[in-house]
Structure formats: structure tokens, C-alpha cells
Write a protein that binds this DNA or RNA. Structure first.
Length: 739
RNA sequence: GCUAGCGUAGCUCAACGGUAGAGCACUGGUUUUGUAAACCAGCGGUUGUGGGUUCGAUUCCCACCGCUAGCUCCA
């Protein structure tokens, strides 16, 4: 007989086989009607499931006021949507249909593709299902039976999922709702009638099990709530959020532009945006000076050889602009070399390779047609031979090589002798050359080299997005070369710097992620010992600061683990801004050293860090954070002087020049418009202060200030106003709402 | 790169198998004004680009370019 204790501290003993629903009914009819699910010992479960035998279960009954209940509702609504789709699109294959933070989706493979114009009839079908208020009935089957059940339903993806993963379990659970049965862990609503409001949101592609080499399914995004009022509020909120979109505001406020002719993903900073960026950079420069950093400058391109040594060129090849070779044959040979070096590949790697070759626009005649691995390599080798012949390149080493590996080596040797450059994908190799230019003693460390360094990455077209994902961007980068016992104090100082930067801008809504390597993956370089040390250091430092964080495997850089500061944009997408990374590997690859107190040579450790991350991305996020209404110290136009009529233009010009001489960014609207129109324009341009001048102000030598947002600060002497603005400049004052 | 959708004046949008229209912005003029739009006139488009179907395409079809959402990727 289960004994249960409730959140109010009371406890009850129930007859064996009782469910949470029985418990609710025992407490009251209204509670039983309102109950959605139960939390039993911390786990959300169905109301109707018999309670486990055992003393003192902690039970909480969930109603539509609990956030966990909303998740249950959405998961159930995913089933309802899938059921509707199966009715309208017979033969559809179901994949996964989980709840999300703001809704849910279901991945579906339909014989006739679903289109957005089908949404109304899917919604109509869902309304019918909800109106019928049929219960969600749970049942279990031993795994073998479960498999034949889903097979009998013709749900091939579910069969695949059982074979690949679920077969390790003894039994599997299902939920039935009318004619619809779905393999599912649950929990679910008592019945479909609990769904108060829902809406299909969008349609997108998604790979089966998130694997880009598998088939692509259609993902139906939707959301659901307990009431229409909640849904309306959510939709309103989405609309409001869209008004903050930095792409919209960037255009409206003339902050930046992107021209397809200049290149997509290439941000062109317009004067107003550039002004803000300059102030941000100046702010950081002051902090860096205070912290013992040395500014450096390095060029936008570097020798290929340097990026071969660092590993960036081979590792991120397909995400870089193509290398710049002097020799006309070199680019093609380079790609062939890349393919030959890979050698015989397994199936998954061959898929990646085909993908890469197509992305790199490399056509190897006969490659696609070749059935075997050997055939593909032979096709590549034939192309190399043709290229060598056409370009009259004599490469005896290649001719004499006995096998593919030997030929790859020969090609590499030749390529390494060719003059080739790469658009800078990272600043670190350049900074490393600066470190190496001078013999270093332990007394010199830490060496902190800082640069606003612009880097270029060939992001996939589908990834480009405003200022947040671009192909050319400037990192507020620095590389610290430290002794092993300086690591933790420097990490600490840098995390604090990132925190200071975020706090100064009023960005408080971020999360901290420690990126660790994925165990068992071979995409990382360096020894296990170094990795273990590095990961342990990062975790220790973050813990010592008492910060909340998540440790995520597979989020490390290929050369080391990192701490990322992650924020969200106006539509909820997460972006990495500030980052602090620990690296034992590049110092090895470039053979860095310093002389220790023992007069012996030692290897420094590197810290890569960028508090803003990328100036472009940071600016994008900042525009959304302030909704374009930048605080006075950042506003490109701080004050606009408005004349009541053109009679006062001379006085206005005087005020304007006094403010400008005081270092304030000011303009004057001297046009023939009425003051109401000028105020409206100033408000739309989000100018923090509008200074109105007319007869009264001329008499008093004053300005009448209207604050952004409409507050009337009244009339004040020009000098008093100047002092106010200057105070906000030096204090980097934030508006009240964003502190 | 993949899936789906979109692309009309500087911006926001309308229309349509019979060679495009509004508001704002811009230019000129009238008005000289007190806190979110004074009035009048003018300028502005080979409907993203290139093909095809058609007597005729901006509209229908194809390719490319670009944008949007999501997926995959993200040093």
C-alpha cells in the first residue's frame, strides 16, 4: 500500500493499485478535474499509472498552472498533430515529436510533402481530435512484441529506432488515442480535451536522428497552451520580439548594411554603427591597458604553411575561403592531395568526403561513378596525372611513389614548396610569430598580445544571418603566453574581464558553458594528459567563482577546452559571445619556449580569449538588447537640437557648437517642419535627448530637454545639460530598464 | 550545403496572363510653427538576374543570385 506525502506536508495511505488520479479524487473533485499529471519522487508521470509500492512517495499534482504541465500538454499535442497528419497524409512515417521550450515539433516523412498551405486543414483535423477528448491510454509490450507492433503499423523509422537503440530495453511503452498508437515514453494528458489552444508555426527540414548523411524529414513546428489567452500573449510577444531584430533596426537606424555585391556575410559598418563599435573598442582598450596587455597588429592573410602547422588549414578546410596559390595548377592539386591523403575511407567518412568535395566544387571525373574506394582513388590519381601533364609540372617523386600514401606525400611536398596564402581564419598563428620573434624568459611571462583582428571564414550559405553569423568578422582577440602555474590566475582574470564587459553593457541574461572534448572522438589534437589538465583547470576556476555553468561534451575547440558566454537573440537563438580557451597544443606545434629560472627551456601554455567575441555578433546582440535605443554613452547621436521655428536657427547653431566642443555627439534639425514633426523624427531615430529651442530658451540661454521615451526634463541652462551628458559618458550610464 | 518559403520605387506594402500603384523618404514651393506627421507639386521601377512557354510574362515553368525559418556545421 503506497503511502504518499504531499507538498503541503500532509500524508495519506492509499489502497494498493491506486493512481495519482485516485489521490486527486480523494482530495477533491475540482482538483481531479484540473489535474494534468503528477510528479512522483521528482519524476513527471501519468495520472492514471498505478503508484509504485513503497513507503512515503513524494507526490505533487500538476495543474495548468505548473510549467511541467505545459510540457506534458505540448508533448500530447505533438501526438494529436501526428494523428491528424496520418489521417490527411496516409503512409506518413513518424520520427520524433518532443516538447520544446516554447512549443513542440514532430519529424515526419510523408509520401506527399506537407506544405504550409496544408496547415489550416491539419489544424482543423486537430481541432476535431481535441473536441473528441479521447483519453491517452498507456500500455507496454516486451521489446520483441513492440517491434512487431510498430512494424505492423508500417512505421519504419520507429522500427529502425528500436533496432538501433531501444532494443537494449526489456519493454517499451505505447500510447493509444483512438485509432492512433505511438511508441512513446510519455507522460501524457489524461485526455485530448485539455489542449486549450494551439497553432502550427512553421515547416522545416531536419535530418533523421540529426545525422546529415541520413534522409531529411519534414519537421512541423507548433505550439500549444492551456488557454487561447496564453497563446495570444505568446504570439504578441513574438511580434514584439521581431521589432527588436537587429537586421531590421540596423537598416532603420543606418547602423550597418550588407551588399550582395560586396559579398553576403560581409558586414559594411555605416557611420552610426562604426561610431558605436569605436566606443566599444575604446572601452576595451582602456581595460586591456590596465591589465597589462600589449596591443599588436597583424595582416589579413598568412602563409598557408603557417596554417598547416597550426592545423587550421587541414582541419577547417571546407569552412575557409579557398587558398590563394601562385601556381595555376596548385589549387586543383591541393584538393586531390587532400583526397589522396585520406586514403581508403569507411562509409561514413566517404559520405563526408563526397559532401566536402561538392562543397569545394571539386569535380574529379569518374569519382561519383566509381563504385569502390579504390576506384575513387584511381579517379583522383588520373586527374592528378592530367593536371601535371597539362601544366607541364615535373614531379619525379610522384611518378616514383609506390602507393597512394606515397603519392599523397609527394604532392604535399610539392605543394609546400608552392607559394600559397590563406585569408586569416584565426589570429593566433600570427600572434605566435610575434611571441617567437624575441627570446622569452620566465620573467617576461605572461605575455599578453591583443588585437582587434579581422578573420574570414567561409560559412555555409544557409548559416549566414545578419551580424550574428558572417563570413568576415573582427575578434577582440588576445593570446596569453603563460607558465603552467600562471594558468589559473590568468583564466580567472579573463573570466572576470568578460563579466565586466557584459555587465558594463547591461547584458545579464547569459549562460556559461564549459566546452569539453567528446570522449572517444578523434577530432581533437594533443595528449590525453594535457586535455585532462586543461579541462580540470577550467572547471576549477569556474567553480571557484561560484558561477552557474553547464559542462558540455563535444563543445571544445579542436586544440583545447573553452568557457563560452552564450546569449540569446530576439527569436531565442543562442550565440556564443565571449570566450576563454586553454591551449597546450599550439605551443607544441609551433615549438614555443621560454627560459625558466632553472636556465632550461620550457614550453608556455596559451590562453585564447575574446570578451566581446566578435564585434559584429556582439553589435547584433547589443542592438537587440537595447532595441536600438543605445544608452547615451554609446548612442551615435546623443543630442538633437530642434528649433520651434527657423527664427531660432542661429541660437540652435550656437547650442550645437557648444555641445560639440564639449565632446557631445550632436546634430541640429533646422528644417521648416513643426516641432511636433521634428520630435517624431528624433524619437524614431532613438536619439536619447531632444533639445528644443524657441523664444523662451533664447531669452534664458537655455535648452528644454525631452528624454527618449517622452519624459520632459524641463528647461535648463546649456552648461547644466552639457554636464549631465558628460556625466553619462564617463559613467557609462545604462538606462534603468537594462541595468 | 539540405528542406520549405519569399524577392515589385531608397523603405513599408498593393495589383495583375494585356508593359505597375499608395504612403513614407527625397527635390522644389507655400507656411514660421512649442513636444510623435502642416499643405501643394515633382522625382523615382526593363517587377533580383538569365533563359523558356505564350500573340503578349511582372504574373506560368526552369536555372542562377539573394533573403527568411529550421536542419547540419561553427576554430
Amino acid at each position: 500500500m503506497p503511502t504518499v506525502s504531499l507538498p503541503d506536508g500532509s500524508s495519506k495511505t492509499l489502497p494498493a493499485g491506486s493512481s495519482a488520479m485516485d489521490l486527486a479524487e480523494g482530495i477533491g473533485k475540482r482538483l481531479a478535474q484540473a489535474a494534468i499529471a503528477a510528479v512522483i519522487d521528482g519524476k513527471v508521470t501519468d495520472l492514471t499509472l498505478p503508484l509504485p509500492e513503497g513507503a512515503d512517495l513524494k507526490i505533487k499534482l500538476l495543474t495548468d498552472r505548473d510549467p511541467e504541465a505545459l510540457e506534458v500538454l505540448r508533448h500530447s499535442c505533438a501526438h494529436i498533430m501526428a494523428r491528424a497528419v496520418l489521417r490527411l497524409f496516409p503512409g506518413s512515417q513518424l520520427a520524433f515529436g518532443p516538447a520544446l521550450e516554447n512549443g513542440f515539433y514532430y519529424d515526419i516523412e510523408s509520401p506527399t510533402p506537407i506544405r504550409e498551405e496544408d496547415f489550416p486543414r491539419i489544424e482543423e483535423e486537430m481541432r476535431k481530435i481535441i473536441k473528441a477528448s479521447e483519453p491517452f491510454e498507456r500500455f507496454e509490450r516486451v521489446t520483441a512484441e513492440a517491434r512487431s507492433l510498430v512494424e505492423g503499423m508500417g512505421q519504419k523509422l520507429k522500427v529502425e529506432h528500436i533496432d538501433e537503440e531501444l532494443c537494449r530495453q526489456d519493454s517499451l511503452s505505447f500510447y493509444r488515442q483512438g485509432e492512433f498508437i505511438d511508441l512513446c515514453r510519455g507522460p501524457h494528458l489524461p485526455h485530448a480535451g485539455k489542449v486549450g489552444a494551439f497553432k502550427l508555426m512553421s515547416l522545416a527540414g531536419a535530418y533523421w536522428k540529426g545525422d546529415s548523411s541520413r534522409q531529411q524529414l519534414q519537421r512541423l513546428y507548433a505550439t500549444a497552451f492551456f488557454s487561447q489567452k496564453d497563446l495570444d500573449a505568446y504570439l504578441k510577444q513574438l511580434e514584439e520580439a521581431k521589432k527588436r531584430d537587429h537586421r531590421l533596426l540596423g537598416k532603420q537606424l543606418h547602423l550597418f548594411t550588407i551588399s550582395p555585391l560586396a559579398g553576403s556575410g560581409m558586414i559594411l559598418w555605416m557611420p552610426r554603427g562604426a561610431l558605436i563599435r569605436g566606443i566599444l573598442e575604446q572601452f576595451l582598450r582602456e581595460e586591456l591597458t590596465r591589465r597589462g596587455y600589449s596591443p599588436v597588429y597583424t595582416p589579413h592573410v598568412g602563409k598557408l604553411e603557417m596554417y598547416r602547422t597550426s592545423g587550421h588549414f587541414p582541419y577547417y578546410r571546407d569552412a575557409q575561403f579557398p587558398p590563394l596559390y601562385q601556381h595555376p595548377a596548385a589549387s586543383a592539386l591541393d584538393l586531390c592531395q587532400y583526397r589522396l591523403q585520406a586514403g581508403v575511407l569507411d562509409e561514413a567518412r566517404e559520405r563526408d568526403m563526397v559532401l566536402f568535395l561538392s562543397q569545394a566544387c571539386l569535380v574529379i571525373p569518374g569519382y561519383a561513378e566509381a563504385v569502390t574506394q579504390e576506384g575513387r582513388i584511381q579517379a583522383t590519381e588520373r586527374l592528378v596525372e592530367e593536371l601535371l601533364k597539362i601544366h607541364s609540372v615535373d614531379m619525379p617523386e610522384y611518378r616514383q611513389a609506390k602507393d597512394t600514401a606515397g603519392r599523397a606525400k609527394a604532392l604535399l611536398n610539392w605543394l609546400e614548396q608552392q607559394e600559397g596564402y590563406l585569408l586569416k581564419p584565426m589570429n593566433c598563428p600570427h600572434h605566435i610569430q610575434i611571441y617567437k620573434a624575441v627570446p622569452r624568459s620566465y620573467r617576461d611571462l605572461p605575455v599578453r598580445l591583443a588585437e582587434f583582428g579581422t578573420v574570414y571564414r567561409f560559412e555555409q550559405t544557409g548559416e549566414l544571418s545578419g551580424m550574428t553569423r558572417v563570413r568576415g568578422f573582427t575578434q577582440d582577440d588576445a593570446h596569453l603566453f603563460v607558465t603552467p602555474d600562471q594558468i589559473e590566475s590568468e583564466l580567472l582574470a579573463n573570466i572576470e574581464l568578460v563579466q565586466l564587459v557584459l555587465k558594463t553593457l547591461g547584458l545579464t541574461d547569459y549562460r556559461v558553458r564549459i566546452g569539453l572534448r567528446a570522449k572517444g572522438s578523434d577530432k581533437y589534437v594533443g595528449s590525453d594528459d594535457d586535455w585532462n589538465n586543461a579541462e580540470a583547470s577550467l572547471i576549477r576556476v569556474v567553480k571557484s567563482l561560484g558561477m552557474e555553468y553547464t559542462a558540455e561534451e563535444g563543445e571544445a575547440a579542436f586544440y583545447g577546452p573553452k568557457i563560452d558566454f552564450v546569449v540569446r537573440d530576439c527569436i531565442g537563438r543562442e550565440w556564443q559571445l565571449g570566450t576563454v580557451q586553454l591551449d597546450y597544443n599550439l605551443p607544441k606545434r609551433f615549438d614555443l619556449e621560454y627560459t625558466g629560472a632553472d636556465n632550461k627551456s620550457h614550453r608556455p601554455v596559451m590562453i585564447h580569449r575574446a570578451p566581446f567575441g566578435s564585434m559584429e555578433r556582439f553589435m547584433g546582440i547589443l542592438i537587440e538588447h537595447f532595441a536600438g535605443a543605445f544608452p547615451v554613452w554609446l548612442a551615435p547621436e546623443q543630442v538633437r537640437v530642434l528649433t520651434v521655428s527657423e527664427k531660432f536657427n542661429d541660437y540652435a547653431k550656437g547650442v550645437e557648437s557648444r555641445l560639440r566642443e564639449a565632446g557631445i555627439r550632436v546634430t541640429a534639425d533646422l528644417g521648416p517642419d513643426k516641432v511636433g514633426a521634428k520630435v517624431r523624427l528624433g524619437a524614431m531615430d532613438k536619439v536619447p535627448y531632444l533639445a528644443v529651442v524657441g523664444d523662451k530658451e533664447v531669452q534664458a540661454g537655455a535648452v528644454t530637454i525631452r528624454e527618449r521615451g517622452g519624459a520632459d526634463l524641463g528647461s535648463m541652462p546649456v552648461e547644466a545639460f552639457i554636464a549631465r551628458v558628460q556625466g553619462e559618458n564617463t559613467g557609462r550610464t545604462l538606462p534603468k530598464s537594462s541595468t
